[in-house]
Amino acid sequence: MWQYILRRFTYMIFTVWIISLITFAVIQLPPGDYVSTMVSQMINSGMDELPPDFEQEVRAQYGLDQPIYVQYYKWMRNIIRDGEFGYSWIYRRDAKDIMVERLPASFAISAFSVLFIWMIALPIGIYSAVKQYSLADYTFTLIGFIGLAVPNFLFALILLFISYKYMDQAMIGLYSQKYETAPWSLAKFWDLVKHLWIPVVIIGTSGTAGLIRTMRANLLDELNKPYVDTARSKGLSETTLLWRYPVRHALNPFISTIGWILPSLIAGELIVSIVLNLPTSGPVIFNSLMDQDMYVAAGFILILSTLTVLGTFISDLMLALLDPRIRLS
């Protein structure tokens, strides 16, 4: 068991390191850098006479003239030693501050979305499997697929319209105006919950259909296993035996994939956040990539990847706790 944990942990550290390398390299891939973006903006805004070595000087000032591995080394050193993620040229602030500001909202939305998806999809998946080919099975499948097929931005606009028309409230942002800068209080939290449900439902529905199908398929496989017959032959009631045996077996694949949900949620959150004007990470990552604000982009991607890997690690641990075959072998 401890060996298993140690091995997983080593893999995790190694994976994060590889990710940091790839992240840094990929961000450098597009032609030009922030300085060339800046220069072309200055020329566009009417400055035709720039000093001849202006570009060179700015590059030297930011360390952009150095070879990529030196830049990578300094970036990593600062993160590990000082927890500094570099400087944002666009926001003219530390990248770290922007991350601290934006990431919590993203995680709140992601966490609630996962909860929402699980609470909706698992019971429906179980029900659909037990009542296979029934009217309810088909109905849930249909609804699930509609949720999957409707683009998030469209769904966001529709909910926005409904909330504005029938609830007299534009559900834009995460807080109402009066709470925007207010200190934390129960009222502010309630206000947050009132706003949060829209992005959670939008992001959640697209993930629900897939999970319903997976749960249904997993459980259908398990329902015909001989151990279910054994349980039934003992005289257990259908409900008890369903939860105690096949559902328990069918849950394993989910637990091992909890960690992978995060990236797809962040990707889904991006569009919804732009439409609903939410102060989350998605739009910032998007803009920083567009404008080559490389330290912001690299920092966000690194943190999100690390958390994904960490999530996978945690699901490995949970799986080991739940499945004796892993724990004891």
Binding site: K225, P226, T230, S233, G235, H249, P324
Partner: peptide
Amino acid sequence: RGQEIAMIFQEPMTSLSLM
């Protein structure tokens, strides 16, 4: 079931829950 009539199945590997 289980009390009056009990049953033993063919495949003990799959007829018992491994979890």
